[in-house]
């Protein structure tokens, strides 16, 4: 007899049917789940002086939801103003098709822009001068799949000049040493020259290839009856922030009892009056905001360039030592006061 309850039609194979159906249902449901994307970011820290930029970048990225090892991986490479290494590292980033390159300062950024030509890898820079470097087309629309945080070189140079004059109102001749041929210097000098002229201040420009040449220049002034300058003001360039060169300049200033200022440096008992720069950590954070926009799909070239805020460090000890007066307002504006 055959009917539905015949032994042939018991449910011996039903578990197979059940599993098949469950597998079908859950595989269907699983289709809606997505594998989280992991971004690969290459970081090139091109100058030890600005190394904290990378820290600020990573910290802010974490705050913005990009946690290293979970949804973002960093390839953080560090070198100290070595163009050859810049190229090698950046080429490797391009070869590995990283999702984004974060690079600083200006020279490294210029190399990065060249390295990513022909690829679709976006570049975020920090502490880079956009004046006279051709990095971007405009502040609002940088183009070329690149954006970042600009270093406000000319304005910082002006502010350094204004602060120096506020601290030392009797200064009439200011020595401006800088590395010869450094590309971003000219824009700073261009900003300074008319302002200084309007204020009746003589800018004594002293380009030098290295500290030896600089030492020679200063020695010649020392040897002369009148050294010809009342103060030394740093521009945003590498020579002043190199310890050996700074020592040469600071020793000259100390010997002739003239203020040296612009970048906050302390070496071999010598120190500058103040430094006006940018906060590297904060700049890194600003750059992180830019990078997140890119990772969310906004073309880098359409993201406006942002400016780093100036960071004023006042060496009150050196000011007093030199017998200068600091107004309460200037003290209040200082982000950091060293006593």
């Amino acid at each position: 007899m055959h009917n539905m309850f015949s032994h042939k039609y018991r449910f011996g194979r039903q578990p197979v049917f059940t599993l098949s159906m469950l597998a079908f249902v859950f595989s269907w449901a699983g289709c809606a789940l997505k594998t989280p994307e992991i971004f690969h970011v290459g970081i090139l820290s091109g100058l030890n002086f600005t190394a904290k930029v990378g820290d600020g970048f990573k910290t802010k990225m974490t705050v913005l939801g990009y946690v290293e090892g979970r949804n973002i991986i960093y390839d953080h490479q560090t070198t100290d103003f070595d163009i050859t290494m810049y190229k090698m590292i950046l080429n490797r980033f391009v070869h590995e098709q990283v999702d984004l390159i974060f690079v600083f300062p200006t020279e490294a950024t210029q190399e990065a822009k060249a390295a990513v030509q022909g690829s679709r890898i976006p570049v975020v820079f920090a502490i880079a001068n956009i004046e006279d470097t051709g990095l971007v087309e405009s502040v609002r629309a940088p183009g070329n799949n690149i954006t970042g945080v600009r270093y406000p070189g000319p304005d910082i140079a002006l502010q350094r000049f204004e602060i120096l004059r506020e601290l030392a109102p009797r200064v009439k001749r200011i020595l401006i040493p800088y590395q010869r041929g450094y590309p971003i210097v000219s824009s700073q000098l261009d900003a300074l020259r008319p302002v200084a002229a309007a204020a009746g201040i003589t800018l004594v420009e002293a380009p030098a290839a290295d500290k030896e040449e600089l030492a020679g220049l200063l020695a010649a002034r020392t040897a002369a009856k009148n050294i010809g300058v009342d103060a030394i003001l740093a521009l945003a360039e590498p020579l002043f922030v190199t310890s050996d060169a700074f020592v040469v300049m600071a020793a000259f200033a100390d010997r002739h009892h003239i203020p040296i200022a612009g970048a906050l440096m302390m070496a071999e008992g010598h120190e500058s009056l103040f430094g006006l720069h940018v906060n590297d950590f904060n700049v890194g954070q600003q750059a992180a905001s830019q990078a997140v926009k890119i990772l969310k799909g906004i073309p880098a070239g359409s993201i406006p360039i942002v400016s780093a805020d100036p960071y004023f460090q006042l060496n009150y000890r050196a000011v007093i030592k030199l017998g200068l007066h600091v107004s309460e307002g200037l003290l209040s504006r200082a982000n950091e006061v060293i006593r």
Binding site: D309, S327, G329, S332, R333, A334
Partner: peptide, 13 residues
Amino acid sequence: QKELLNKLLGTDL
């Protein structure tokens, strides 16, 4: 007033 404004500028970035 200028000193006051400088203080204020330094107080709030």
